[in-house]
């Protein structure tokens, strides 16, 4: 029971990272209704991007973050136009498998470029930490949490208060009306998709100095991301944030209190996923499942 303060800190910080991880997925599904099975690879490429920039020019990942996000967004928009737009009206099978295939290609391009060994970026703040009595707060994760807060805040602000953002919300809520009103649907879709990739890239940048990165990290992240999105409710960004923290708490609690907990913690995501799908498919905040 004396674990509780530390548990809360660990769970909150983990939740911040998870939030960053899924916010992109939630955005792209909410707007384009395409589940991006290549999202994990966007994260992975963001991590490798930060690593390469740090290696080649010594620039800190946090400084490289904005640039990488812009690149990610442009890449996402291009990808959308080229590969995803054609299947917007296709059966789900096609969409799922298409993005799956794209993810596979990206993963192996990374393998070819960077080889399969593990890497990590070494920065001074990544190793810093603060001690409050018995509770220890790792600096790297705190920064990750901070970035997550900033980006999520920016996203919400954008959705509420800018022209583009409002148009995106309109698409989300009332597709046909939006078209009638003259909103350029295709452009919005591409932009939303691009933003979702940018958010994925941001996650990768943070992960690059918190832990180890490898070309295969994407799949893992993807599955977790799904668990969270389904838990929170497909298409709801608020739901995604809630889901992220809930899962983080569940996993951390299992790690601490269940014997061999860290071994079972990964399974929590799947158990949650399965339970939610069975008991309440719409998730906490999500829309009805009729699709």
């Amino acid at each position: 029971m004396h674990y509780i303060p530390q548990l809360i800190v660990d769970a909150l910080l983990l939740g911040g990272i998870y939030t960053l991880m899924v916010i992109g997925l939630a955005l792209s599904f909410g707007v384009t209704r395409v589940i991006n099975f290549a999202h994990g690879e966007a994260v992975m490429l963001g991590a490798y991007g930060a690593y390469t920039i740090a290696l080649v020019s010594g620039i800190d990942p946090l400084l490289a973050l904005p640039l990488l996000m812009v690149i990610g967004c442009l890449f996402g928009m291009a990808l959308f136009k080229v590969a995803i737009e054609p299947v917007l009206k296709a059966p789900h099978v096609n969409q799922i498998l298409l993005t799956f295939g794209i993810g596979l290609v990206l993963q192996n391009v990374a393998v070819m470029i960077w080889k399969a060994d593990e890497r990590s970026v070494v920065t001074p703040y990544a190793y810093s930490s603060f001690q409050f009595g018995e509770v220890f707060v790792p600096g790297g994760r705190l920064i990750g949490f901070g970035v997550a807060v900033v980006l999520v805040g920016a996203l919400f602000f954008w959705l509420r208060h800018t022209e583009f953002g409002r148009a995106t919300r309109a698409l989300d809520e009332q597709r046909d009306a939006a078209v009638l009103v003259g909103i350029n649907v295709k452009r919005m879709y591409a932009l939303a998709f691009g933003l979702s990739v940018a958010l994925g890239v941001a996650t990768g940048v943070i992960l690059s100095f918190i832990g180890a990165i490898s070309p295969f990290m994407g799949f893992h992240i993807l599955v977790k991301g799904f668990a969270i999105i389904v838990l929170g409710g497909l298409g709801s960004i608020v739901g995604a944030v809630l889901g992220a923290f809930l899962l983080a708490f569940a996993e951390t609690a299992v790690s601490y209190y269940v014997p061999n907990g860290t071994g079972w913690a990964e399974a929590v995501a799947f158990a949650v996923l399965f339970l939610v799908l069975v008991l309440r498919p719409r998730g906490i905040v999500g829309q009805a499942v009729a699709d």
């Binding site: 548990l7 660990d10 990272i17 990290m217 860290t262 071994g263 990964e266």
Partner: peptide, 17 residues
Amino acid sequence: EEIVRTNAPDMNPLLTK
């Protein structure tokens, strides 16, 4: 004695223990 899943992103709980 603590077991850890391969590719686990967070080993902090077990380190705390």
